[in-house]
Nucleic acid binder design. Structure first.
Lengths: 224, 224
DNA sequence: GTCTATATCAAGATAGAC
DNA sequence: GTCTATCTTGATATAGAC
């Protein structure tokens, strides 16, 4: 959260503005999560941050830009989390499944996370104008996940349909779907169900591949 | 009222009202899906249905009631679909996985389905006032799914953590998560990935259970 | 750079005509 | 039972003061 605020020295103009911007983004996260894009008012966001409407419009062109900037910041965090997991995994420090499990728990702890995720998804699905911009932000964390699954698949007998992309999609779906169910009804989704599911998944892929060991047979022109 | 039966052409008062109601609900599904609850206007819904605002308010108390009635109708369809799958499965006519796969494809064909699902989820998560009502509507289809997974699990060696409830949650998560990814980027999620994922899941559960065949061993005091 | 005041508009809901 | 007209509110965005 907030780290270095030098209470002694006066903040420079640029520092003050950056601080205002940060506070506005934090307030926006809270209000957009609770009310949604259309339901949230810029006035409430500004007041929650401790500023006026004017301050908000001096930092963001309009409501949509604020929302999209929040989306960028939101994804920066996801990228950081994914990178951390990937690093731990590649160092061999931690099992990949455990690391992914920690991401889910972290996301679950932040009660706004699932709400914001849902709101961003709807916004992207409804607004083709900004869809490309938003989709581009997802490529980096998704690539990290595919790398992780690719590594895991290399260690077992996977059938040809179990590509890193396909398995990454399945894991992302599990993450998303379990997080959402847990948000509404924690009793239905225990904290370690995600971990179990991922292990079942890989065990099943391995078992399926072992049953059809033709997998390295054919290689027409290019692997994909 | 005047129960005049005119089987020829003219609709009775009640029939006309029922027809208006149905058209309004269909329009509401479209507009709520495209704009969301807060973003949709009752005027646009009424006009899309071919009526005026007054007609809408004569059929529904307010915007929220219209939304919740739509949710009920939406779930009636889901219950019907689930029941159909369950019936086919229990008759032995169709493999359970194939049947579930068909549900996903059907949902994917209706471009409004995922949007509405997302909107309903957000509304339930944000409005504790109506959460119980909405959650109650989910119990029936969820129970059907648990019954389906319970039957499937009975035919293989499942570890103790693979309860019908837990596995049903995983399958629901796969359904939800894959549907949402496919909605934004169909290239990432092939039409049969859901089927593959479910098969991998059950194969993995079976393999895991076979590896730890102590499953009926110990029962200290209370199952959890 | 932020605040106050305000122009402008769209939306939910109601009342009374037909 | 549905329509037209209207009341009322609350929101985005801007302009000018400090």
């Amino acid at each position: 959260m907030d780290a270095e605020t030098t209470p002694r020295r006066r903040l420079s103009r640029a520092e003050a503005k950056a601080r205002t911007r940060k506070l506005l983004l934090e307030a926006a996260a809270q209000i957009f999560a609770r009310k949604g894009f259309a339901g949230a008012s810029v006035e409430e966001i500004a007041e929650t941050a401790g500023f006026s409407i004017g301050a908000l419009y001096s930092n963001f062109a309009n409501k949509e830009e604020l929302f999209l900037e929040l989306y960028s910041a939101f994804n920066q965090d996801r990228i950081a989390a994914a990178a951390e997991v990937l690093a731990e995994y590649e160092k061999g420090t931690e099992d990949g499944v455990n690391a992914m499990g920690r991401i889910l728990v972290d996301a679950d702890t932040d009660s706004d996370f699932a709400l914001l995720l849902g709101e961003f998804w709807l916004y992207a699905a409804r607004n083709p104008r900004v869809y490309d911009t938003m989709a581009a932000r997802l490529r980096e964390p998704r690539a990290a996940l595919e790398r992780l699954t690719g590594n895991a698949l290399a260690e077992l007998k996977a059938p040809p349909e179990a590509t890193p992309q396909a398995v990454a999609a399945v894991i992302a779906a599990l993450f998303d779907g379990l997080l959402r169910q847990r948000r509404l009804n924690p009793g239905l989704v225990s904290a370690d169900l995600f971990g179990h599911a991922v292990r079942w998944l890989f065990a099943g892929i391995d078992a399926t591949g072992a049953r059809t060991p033709v997998k390295t047979a054919r290689r027409s022109k290019k692997a994909n």
